[in-house]
Design a protein around this nucleic acid. Structure first.
Length: 557
DNA sequence: GCCGTTTTCGGCCCGACTGTTTTCAGTCG
């Protein structure tokens, strides 16, 4: 049982305790341990074998015994007992926005409803509003929420799909019957939300390959099988398709399976006429069509074919171009690691700089910084910087944009910092006009450099708030402000369309990780993919600049 | 259920919004 599975079980225990109305701090104790184990960098089994479970923060006598039982037996009686009392469908209710453990528990205990389907039907039949404390509005939100979940259940964000696809690919790669293998389809094109995982295999032994596919431990069921094709489901409920071709066919098939449909349409006849024997790479395929190679992220039928025929595609920004991270949290606010640890992790990635940008104090949940602590941090940064060579921590803040558009810290504090990000973290439901006016005020504010996660969207969970993006772009261009691409796979905010429009207006974009943990620094790769899908080149991205150029740019805004 | 030293019991992140109420419980970030 690995760290993730144990974390999941402890999280579920916490949810079930909440639903049963137990002491909320008991639930939180389990949740904290789950969180810690999830983020641990070493295998918990190894920790257990080598040093026992003594040192794990938040683990006392009771939780230690349960952890031990799980690690020794792979099972937990306490967990089984809770499952008896809280059916899985009731747990799923917690995914409905605005519906928490109290409501889920009340619905179940008062009506016996124990699945989302039954709940949806009850809402349709107006039976939910009959329950004490619930009305028509709650009932409506439940219905809408379940509809959203149904739609989201079909898709996964790239942060889930890509690692899984790579694991599957690496697994297949290890067999001699597999001569070539690549992740294809929408995952390869880097779409933020994907419906399935597509893999292309080049092999002369179809049957052996099909047998290996079944042995991948995350393959849960096979839905369809033909000699050169397997379709099935993987562990978190994600569909996959594997296409097996003769190795000679591989490169053309790679273009075809990568898609998209709109991209392929104008070139499909020519592709079908190609003599595959002369092809040794994907570049060869495009070359044979008298075209420039088109990076997968551009293959969406948005004019890339036309430009490739004229050899006029932009050179897209790449991960190697990124010189530093401009949005990082530490344990001064809600991050997991110290300033030193985050800086060390950033330096290990080969960065020249990292801006430390904690939350400001109005975001109390995150232990946001007030002016005093912020200046203390700036001092700590100064100290640390003396010890580095070729790396620098930049001072900064992710200052809250308050409801009226004013900032959570005074100008005389902000002006002392290298990087000021301004972000919205509250009052998501203002009217479009109010929200726009609020953000515009921040854009116009003299010391703001970057607007963080502009729309606040959470893919598959929450749409962005109502805001006039064009008005923001106009103002950002006028005021020489930078827009962030927040690289969290469930944010990717701004999205690719907005990034593209920003580029056409000459607005620079900062691709940032928003890391709260040192492992999160790597998420910036998703932001780079998103930027590439928005056709951005190195010159469009602020943090491709070296330290001195970056600081000069920020000073001369 | 965990933690600690001014505590072995009494705290444990907190403020605002929403939808239900008619003064508040539940949810969220």
């Amino acid at each position: 049982m690995d760290n993730r599975e144990i974390a999941r079980i402890f999280d579920e225990i916490a949810d079930m305790l909440d639903i049963l109305g137990e002491n909320p701090f008991k639930a939180r104790a389990y949740r904290q341990v789950a969180h810690y184990i999830y983020r641990m960098e070493t295998d918990i089994n190894r920790v257990y074998e080598e040093q026992g479970l003594e040192g794990i923060p938040g683990v006392g006598k009771a939780i230690r015994a349960k952890l031990q039982e799980l690690l020794e037996t792979g099972d937990l009686q306490y967990y089984r007992g809770l499952q008896e009392k809280v059916p899985p469908g009731v747990l799923e209710m917690l995914d409905i926005p605005g519906l928490g453990p109290k409501t889920a528990g009340a619905i179940y205990s008062q009506t016996g409803i124990d699945t989302l389907e039954k709940l949806y039907r009850a809402a349709q039949e107006k039976r939910i509003r009959e329950l004490p404390g619930m009305g028509a509005k709650t009932e409506y939100n439940i219905k809408k929420g379940i509809e959203m979940l149904r739609a989201a259940r079909e898709t996964f964000n790239l942060g889930t799909a890509l690692p899984l696809a790579r694991e599957f690919k690496d697994f297949l790669c290890s067999f001699s019957c597999v001569e070539m293998v690549e992740v294809t389809g929408s995952v390869r094109r880097g779409k933020p939300l994907v419906g399935d995982i597509d893999i292309l295999v080049g092999s002369r032994q179809e049957e052996t390959v099909r047998d290996k596919i079944r042995r991948f431990r995350k393959v849960k069921e096979i839905l369809e099988e033909k000699p050169s094709y397997v379709k099935g489901k993987m562990a978190p409920g994600m569909s996959f398709e594997v296409v097996i071709v003769d190795p000679q066919e591989f490169w053309r098939a790679l273009v075809i399976t990568t898609g998209s449909k709109d991209h392929l349409e104008p070139i499909r006849p020519a592709l079908e006429d190609l003599d595959c024997r002369s092809l040794h790479s994907e570049e060869d395929v495009y070359r044979s069509l008298s075209m420039q190679f088109i990076p997968p992220e551009l293959r969406e039928g948005r004019g890339e074919i036309e430009l490739a025929r004229r050899f006029a595609l932009p050179r897209l920004v790449a991960w190697e171009d990124i010189k530093g991270d401009l949005h990082v949290h530490t344990d001064w606010s809600d991050g997991a690691h110290s300033l030193e640890e985050m800086a060390a992790a950033a330096a290990r990635l080969g960065y020249s700089y990292m801006a430390v940008t904690e939350h400001s104090h109005s975001l109390a949940v995150s232990r946001g910084l007030d002016a005093e602590r912020l200046l203390a941090q700036a001092k700590a940064v100064e100290e640390l910087n003396r010890g580095y060579d070729g790396f620098r921590i930049l001072t900064g803040i992710e200052v809250d944009i308050l409801r009226d558009g004013s900032l959570d810290l005074p100008d005389e504090v902000l002006e002392k910092l290298d990087v000021v990000i301004a972000s919205v973290h509250s009052h998501f439901r203002l009217s479009r006009a109010e929200q726009t006016e609020r953000v515009l005020k921040a854009v116009e504010s003299p010391h703001v450099d970057i607007i963080g996660h502009l729309t606040g969207r959470l893919l598959g969970r929450r749409p962005g708030y109502e805001i006039d993006i064009d008005a923001v772009l106009e103002s950002a261009a006028r005021n020489r402000k930078v827009l962030e691409i927040n690289s969290y796979p469930d944010r990717l905010d701004i999205d690719e369309e907005t990034a593209f429009r920003a580029k056409t207006k000459g607005i620079k974009v900062a691709i940032s990780s928003d890391a709260h943990h040192r492992a999160d620094l790597e998420l910036i790769r998703y932001g780079v993919v998103n930027a590439r899908r928005g056709w951005l080149g190195r010159e469009d991205v602020l943090n491709t600049l070296g330290t001195e150029e970056l600081l000069a740019y920020l000073r001369n805004k």
